[in-house]
Computed example of a mutant assay.
Amino acid sequence: MQTIPVFYTISDNYTTYAYVSIQSLIDHADPNQDYTITLLVQKISAAHKQSLEDLSTDNVHVKIFHINDEMVKPIHKTKENYLRAQFFTMSIFYRLFIPELFPQYDKAVYLDADTIICNDIANLYNTKIGENMFASCPDLSIRYMPLLQKYIKECQGILPPEKYINNGVIVFNMKAFRDKHFVDKFYYLMDKYHFDNVDPDQAYMNEICEDKIYHLPKEWDSMPNESIPEFTNPKIVHYNLFFKPWHFADVQYGHYFWDVAKKTPYYAELKQQLDDFTDEDRKKARQDLEWMAKKVDLIVNEPHTWAKVKQHESVKID
């Protein structure tokens, strides 16, 4: 029986959402398969740690892994590393180190905690991605946002912009990451250029691995997008950006989250979060999205954008 390794990276305050995501994965797990779920954290409360570990079943094993502070020490809390141009969270970078930290695996799945799994994750794991560094879906959350399309073209220098991926769902070629020394390349570029990004971890993965990324069918990363209808049969729902079902009652794909959440011990807490999130909070969330887009006009004038650097130095893995 093969073991399917699945990774999440969370901060303590994302425990409730990770719990719901893992429960959805368990709900669709094949009883004849073996799954090991590892959550990478720096700090987590004893109660939250126990809660997550207690999700384990006979064939789904949930573990907590404390990431080494030294490994992420070079990543600084500076504006270029702000997520969505709003705030700093170290946890978004943890995924970049998974291949180095777990050399026993040559392949693995990574999932953001704000996902709901609607299919056996073994089917994603078994996707054949060839010699590519990893597999992910093109980022449909920004497909219809002109300023973010500008960001990909003029700041990232990735053309066509439709090939820019979202890294909330990843099938890692772990061996390739190690063999190609991805982490060394990441440290080098970050230290030399301090690229300003609205999506720091995702930008580095897109740039360093460009042209060595396998594009998954879009249903594996189904994201709310007010410009397009819901997919009929999403395999994974990913509540990307600001529109979370615990904040917006009418968000696309919202029922997938609540159908699972109601079976968990955090249901009342999550419903309270929805009730406490005011219209003013929702207005601010939309303004935050607008600010993220507007920041593109600031980034494009930075001395070191990806697009500018690529005119004189290759940033890609060979």
Results as ranks from 00 to 15, higher is better:
residue 313 E to S: 11
residue 257 F to D: 00
residue 195 F to D: 00
residue 216 L to A: 01
residue 50 Q to T: 15
residue 176 A to V: 09
residue 197 N to F: 12
residue 138 P to S: 12
residue 277 F to T: 06
residue 246 W to E: 00
residue 155 C to V: 12
residue 269 E to A: 12
residue 76 H to A: 14
residue 294 K to A: 07
residue 254 G to N: 06
residue 316 K to A: 11
residue 281 D to F: 14
residue 197 N to A: 12
residue 20 V to I: 11
residue 119 N to I: 11
residue 200 P to M: 05
residue 100 E to I: 08
residue 171 V to W: 07
residue 90 M to I: 11
residue 250 D to F: 14
residue 182 F to Q: 02
residue 256 Y to K: 03
residue 121 I to D: 00
residue 188 Y to T: 10
residue 301 N to Y: 15
residue 187 Y to Q: 03
residue 44 I to D: 00
residue 211 D to V: 11
residue 264 T to V: 06
residue 295 K to I: 10
residue 153 K to A: 10
residue 249 A to M: 05
residue 85 A to L: 04
residue 169 V to F: 08
residue 96 L to D: 04
residue 212 K to M: 11
residue 124 L to M: 07
residue 247 H to R: 12
residue 285 A to D: 03
residue 78 T to N: 07
residue 49 K to R: 10
residue 226 E to H: 11
residue 203 A to S: 08
residue 302 E to A: 13
residue 168 G to S: 06
residue 182 F to G: 01
residue 190 M to L: 10
residue 264 T to K: 01
residue 282 R to T: 03
residue 276 D to T: 13
residue 112 D to I: 08
residue 125 Y to M: 04
residue 159 L to Y: 13
residue 176 A to W: 06
residue 300 V to A: 05
residue 174 M to W: 12
residue 12 D to E: 04
residue 109 V to Q: 03
residue 152 I to L: 03
residue 36 T to F: 14
residue 184 D to P: 02
residue 84 R to C: 12
residue 183 V to N: 05
residue 129 I to S: 01
residue 63 K to I: 11
residue 78 T to G: 07
residue 215 H to A: 03
residue 103 P to R: 15
residue 168 G to H: 13
residue 195 F to P: 00
residue 11 S to N: 14
residue 74 P to H: 09
residue 94 Y to A: 02
residue 143 R to G: 04
residue 196 D to W: 14
residue 198 V to A: 03
residue 307 A to V: 07
residue 86 Q to F: 15
residue 103 P to D: 14
residue 238 H to L: 05
residue 114 D to P: 02
residue 222 S to P: 00
residue 132 N to E: 04
residue 118 C to V: 05
residue 302 E to N: 13
residue 54 D to M: 10
residue 262 K to F: 13
residue 179 D to F: 12
residue 231 F to V: 12
residue 34 D to C: 05
residue 6 V to R: 03
residue 148 L to G: 02
residue 194 H to A: 08
residue 146 P to F: 14
residue 8 Y to N: 01
residue 240 N to Y: 14
residue 101 L to C: 06
residue 23 Q to L: 09
